[in-house]
């Protein structure tokens, strides 16, 4: 078995110095901000609130629902199936499509109260090697239970969407080592609807069920 090298990541939050007071300004911002901004605002809650269940929605949906008080649009943005996108540009296109559609039919453009504007931010990610590597499924299972949530986050979320590896790192390693069924089952999970600890538990359960020949 090729050893699986566990990595982890830590994020620096950058301020872009740009804000939106209403949906039109949000739409204009979404067209121009870097991908790292889209990533930040669609994944911040996963990182900052990874213990919460039910998990709050992404930043765009939260602001649209709670500040602009547009619950229908907020719900559409919060239920975007992020797991199906393979690149942040695809996600940007979809976010813009949903907002444009709403604006086309809108009879009014609500404005955020002063002090509650949407501030565009971005992530800069630093990737590190951990001391952990797995050369067997047993080792993998054991390490999975002790790595930090940042490591889990890196291999599941960051690898697929931000680094555009097409699939999460765990599924790739399972498949390369003859566990195609396990790889597919992990791929089919929607990790965005779990807390990170819930996701960790589910992965261990799947390994127990499908991780032996």
């Amino acid at each position: 078995m090729t050893p699986f090298l566990f990595h982890t990541k830590l994020d620096q939050t950058l301020l872009l110095g740009r804000h939106a007071k209403n949906l039109k300004e949000l739409e204009a911002g979404l067209r121009e901000v870097p991908e790292s901004c889209l990533y930040f605002h669609t994944h911040r809650y996963l990182r900052q609130h990874h213990f919460l269940s039910p998990e709050p929605p992404n930043d765009f949906a939260y602001w649209i629902t709670e500040v602009l008080v547009e619950p229908a649009l907020g719900e559409r943005i919060s239920s975007l199936d992020i797991v199906q996108y393979h690149s942040l540009e695809d996600l940007r296109t979809e976010l813009l499509r949903v907002i444009e559609e709403h604006l086309r039919d809108a009879t009014r453009i609500p404005t955020a109260p002063a002090g509650q504007e949407f501030h565009f931010m971005a992530s800069r990610t630093f990737v590190f090697r951990t001391p952990f590597s797995a050369s067997s499924m047993n080792e993998f299972r054991s390490i999975l239970q002790r790595i930090s949530v940042n490591s889990l986050y890196y291999h599941i979320f960051e690898a697929k969407l931000r680094l555009e590896r097409g699939q999460n790192d765990f599924s790739r390693w399972f498949r390369d080592n003859g566990f195609a069924d396990l790889a597919t089952r992990v791929e089919r999970l929607d990790p965005y609807t779990y807390t990170l600890e819930g996701l960790r538990h589910t992965l261990v359960t799947l390994i127990d069920a499908y991780g032996t020949h």
Partner: peptide
């Protein structure tokens, strides 16, 4: 600590896993 590190690296994703750094820049 991340702020101090950021002074010596560019890019949205900074890979420090190999000891020597490499950088992937997107967006």
């Amino acid at each position: 600590l991340l702020l101090f590190l950021s002074l010596f690296h560019d890019g949205d994703v900074v890979d420090l896993s190999a000891g020597a750094s490499s950088t992937v820049t997107r967006g």
